[in-house]
Every structure is written in C-alpha cells, then in structure tokens.
Design a protein around this nucleic acid. Sequence first.
DNA 1: AAATGAGTTGAAAACGTTTTCATTTCAATA
DNA 2: TATTGAAATGAAAACGTTTTCAACTCATTT
Lengths: 340, 340
Amino acid sequence: MKSGQVTIKDIAKELNISVSTVSRALAGNPLVKPSTKAAVIELAEKLNYQPNYTALSLRNNTTKTLGVIIPQLVHDFFSMVVRGIEDVAYASGYSVIICNSHESYEREVIDTKTLMNGRVDGVLACITKHTKDVTHFKEFVNRSIPLVFFDCVVDDIDTDKVIIDDYEASYNAVNHLIETGRKHIAYIGGPISLLINQNRYKGYKDALEKHGMSVNDNIVAHCETGDFADGTSSAKKFMDNNQQFDAIFGATDMLAIGAIKHLKKAGKVVPHDISVFGFSNWKISELYEPSLSTVDQPGYEMGRISAELLLNQIRNEDDTFSPKTEILKTDLIVRESSTI
Amino acid sequence: MKSGQVTIKDIAKELNISVSTVSRALAGNPLVKPSTKAAVIELAEKLNYQPNYTALSLRNNTTKTLGVIIPQLVHDFFSMVVRGIEDVAYASGYSVIICNSHESYEREVIDTKTLMNGRVDGVLACITKHTKDVTHFKEFVNRSIPLVFFDCVVDDIDTDKVIIDDYEASYNAVNHLIETGRKHIAYIGGPISLLINQNRYKGYKDALEKHGMSVNDNIVAHCETGDFADGTSSAKKFMDNNQQFDAIFGATDMLAIGAIKHLKKAGKVVPHDISVFGFSNWKISELYEPSLSTVDQPGYEMGRISAELLLNQIRNEDDTFSPKTEILKTDLIVRESSTI
DNA sequence: AAATGAGTTGAAAACGTTTTCATTTCAATA
DNA sequence: TATTGAAATGAAAACGTTTTCAACTCATTT
C-alpha cells in the first residue's frame, strides 16, 4: 500500500471537525447535522475516500472474507463449486480467497496455516487425493474457526459437510450398463483411500450383486491418481490378461477416456463392443468421440450450499451448533459411449 | 473470528511482563534476556499463539497479499499462470487472492473495487473478452497501487505487461500449414476487439502474404466468444457458402475443435482433406481425435514473470519506475490434425 | 560511595477505524 | 434570568501489533 491513501483524518482536518463526526457522517448516523454530513460526503467523494479494509477488520474483529482450499481449478466441476461459493459470499458482502492445493498434501498443510491467523472468518475445504493425516484441519475446530467440507470430506471431523451421493450415482450408472445388456462390467477408479472412491466402488459392487452378478477382481482397478494415463494402462492390463468384458465403468471422466483410447487402439469399437461410462461431466466428455456417458454432479449447488452453511456458522458463533451433512443428488447423462 | 484467539497480551499477563518484551522475544530481538525469551517462546507454543494477521497488516501498512483478476480458471493455460504466480508469491511470503471475473465485465469492475481498499499490496490482471472501457483499472494507477497486466492487456495504461508473442506464434502456425502444402487457409478467431486476436489475425495475414497469398474474407471469421459452438458455426458457414479451403487456423483450441466437429459431420477427413491448427494447447487438444496441432503458451513462466515484476514494483514504491513489457516466446506443437 | 554504562524492561504512540461517554451549543421553557 | 434538554460534536478507548524513547537494575569502575 502506498502512503497516499485518504483517511478519515484527512477529511476531519480539512473540514476542521473531529474524526468521530466524519465517521458518523459517513455511516449515515442521524446524530450528525445535515449540513455537516453533506460537507463530509462531498469531500469524501471528491478525495475518493475508501475506508481502510485492514482497519475495519481489526476494529470489527471480522474480515468479511471466506477461505477456500481446493485441490484443482482446471476442472469443470470444481470451477462450478467455486462459482456457487462466490455468488453466495458476494451477495452477503464477503470476499473469497482461494488456495489451490494442487493435489499436494504439503501445500494443503501450508494453506491451512495461511488461513489460520485471522485472515478469514471461515474456511471451505476439499481435501486432496493424498491427504490421510488431517490434524491440520482439526486445528480449525480447536480454534473454533468455522469450517465446512465439500466433496472430498474428512470423516472424523465433526463439522458441516456437503457431498455428492457417489454411491447412488455409481449404482445408477452401472445399473444402466446392465439394463442395456452388458454382462461383464469392469471398474476403473481413483485412490480407494478416498471416501468418494469407496462409495463409487460400493455402488458398482451393489449394482452388480443386485442383478445376481459378482465382482471379478481381475477387471477392477483402483488407481493412484485417477488421471488419463491410469485409464489407459488399466484397460491395457485387463486386455493383456485376456479378460473378457463388455463395459467399463470409470469413476472419473479422465479414467474413462483414457480407457477408451486404449480400446480404440486395440481395435475395439465403443460402444458396439464395449460400453463406457464416466463420472463428473467434464466438458471434454461432451466433445470427445464417441461422446461419453457420465454422471453430472451439481457443482454450483454444492458451492452454494456449502457457503450458506459456512455463513450460518459464522453468524451463530456462540450458539451451540450441530453439524449437518448434506447429500446432493446427481444426474445420469447418457451419451454415445453407452448407447448400443 | 472467535473471541478465543491468544494474543501477545495474554502471554504478557501470564508471565507478568510487558507486551513490548513479549513482542521482542517473539521477534528474536537480542535485547531480551535469554531466560525471559525462553519463557515467552515456551508459553507461546503452549498456547498455540499465532500473530494476528490483521493487526500486523495495519501496523506495517502492508498486507503481504497479491490480488489476481483472471477471466477463467477452467483453462489449462490460466491455471499454469496462477501456479506460476503462486510459486513466486509464496516464496516471498506473500499470499494470493484470486478474483475470477468469469469473463464478465461487470464482475471485473466489482473485482477491481474489492481489491482497491487496501486489501492487497498489488494486483495482477488479465482483462475479459468484453472489456473495452478500462477506467476501473486506471484507478489503480491513480492510487499508485502496483499493477501488472498479463496476457490480455490494456494498451493505454502505462504499467508492466507480460504477453505472449501472439503475432509470431500465429505466423509460425500458418507458415507450417503453408509449408505442408496447404493453399487455401481459413481463419476462425475470437473477438477482434482484443489485442491478442488482432495480433493473431495479423500473423495469419502476414504469413499468407509472405507466400504470395492473400486473405479471402469469405473464409475469415471473427467470433464473439471464441467458444466451441462458434468454431462449428463458422466452419458450417464457410462450407454452406461453397468456399474452398484445405486448412483452418483456429485462434483457440476450442474454435479449432468446434470446426473439426463440423468438418467430420460434413464428411471431410482431417487432416487428409483439411488440416487444422489450434492455439493454447488445452489438455483436450492432446486427447481429441485426431489430436490437434496447436501453439503452446508458456503459462507458468508468464505467471512467474508477472509476479516478479509486481513484487519489484511493491518493493520500489518510491523510486521512479519505468514500466516494462515482456514478450514471451511460444512453441508449435504439431500433432495429427496437420500432419498429412 | 558515587558514577558509569551495559543489559533489560516498560510506557506510550502509532496504524485507521468505530463507539462510548462527556461536553458544548443554543433554543425553548419556567 | 436561570434552567432544561435536545441536538451536535469531540475526546478517548479499543482492536493487536511494533517500535521509539525513557527508565530501571546492577555489576564494574573510579
């Protein structure tokens, strides 16, 4: 910041009145004489006065800022979440500061520390794929800093959470594959340490069993990163092992497309020979050929609800607060890759 | 923020010493007696003391925070820019607050206001596609708040800028199409009001003219949004008008892929019948089939350099500062879509 | 014993606000 | 004229730090 910023003192001095009066005039306090008020406001506008944000924060013991810790930004789903958060925050006069952990555990720990020193009034967080130890998040609770988890949540921290019904979504997706006549359905998913992947796998498993099928572990892969290359290598592994399958459920669009890449290369036709279903509805799933059937997650709504829960926590502060978990419904988007 | 935060006063009271001494002890000031220092530090750790960020900002008249105004986050290029900014900022003890204007002029104006009240020490900005009036940015200069533009810059504001050599990149791309034997090259670009699009178009034009060709306006389109659908409709328009062309240069990967979509539908084979070249090296350009030739922009480096320029401005403050413009080189990535 | 001075410590101001409490002004009333 | 009280204003404290300046303690020197 530069020295040149106009303060309330400058206005007071110029008009030969006290800072108290200037403050009141600007706040619209009815105690101040109309003529004084007019003079103050006129001068404030002339000098382009802006109240000092830092001073306000200190005085009011509130920063009017929310912190967001998110593992990725280049992701249509997360982008919509952020947008939902921002819309709610802005509407209530809050700003948002985003910390991108870049799916790095170390960065996430740093981010929590950054947000722990009174810079924000509350925190919204989605943990990385690699986060197992969560003591850095517990510190928020210790300091009673309002906290809401969304999407990838921490099970044993007792606070508000907003999640997708991953189980149901994947159950429905697999169900769709079965109902379109597929008998041998492979599963390619992300790190099974994450709750969301456990649920997606469980949905897959239960859908099979509901139809009297059972899981064939030879066509199940839990990958480290859930990235494109993992999809390709998993599909390759299945085929190299001479496994028979007529469908793949990928717990991520990237895994699904990675798998399709290999299938094409191996001379298989999607969906004729093998149906493929993804998860997340990335933009690419619509543009890819064949276009990818997938699960649409309500990202905007997730952001909106998370931010609302957080603002409620912030406003309550003293009252006893009982954590809620909101579970959001998803939609199946059936496209070419599973339309036989 | 909650009431429970431990302050320097609490420590002072508990140890029966003054706040000054506590402050000095924690700052490692050698004036304080080793035993006192040890006691202070021990208690601070025990109470989990964290210095109050807001109080520090007010005292030191510096927020140790940089603001970023960026029109999109779901974009591999912008994501890398942010990453570069963050790396430099964090390394110098700065935090980053990102304002996503979502390509909305109104939002951008709000974002500038948000950052204008002393919340940040400096601002990095990339304007939206629709920004024409830039008075909201001039205010930063008026208040002498350090400002750096990157990628989509404002021509008539005199400050540091970091840009891509769009002209050269597009010249080289079109040159490549010509050298691989293409004679009739169409152009599909984004809003021509933006400097970057003017430069990309100029590169296209000059490359043609260098080889004795001239622009055929019937196969040139300057689109409103530069999005996928624009690419499709432009290609359709060219074909509906019975224009002959054997290549398309799309000034955006999305435009290029949108165009390919239509070409495929119309029975053309890419690249056999028509070569296509994109711009930006989105992840999708690698995954799409045929994979898309494109221009790789050094996003990470752009972010790094921008942040460094900004930090220099912040540190200089008083000295006279002469704005620089850095122009970064790009790389051609030739893939299937232009390999005949 | 007094003076010196190094080693420690504390009081207070400052950053820019808001807000409580006290004071001034001045017209209306007694 | 003296009193009242509403209207308007100002002084000062507070938020949590850092830092300047002043002051204290004690061993050492004269």
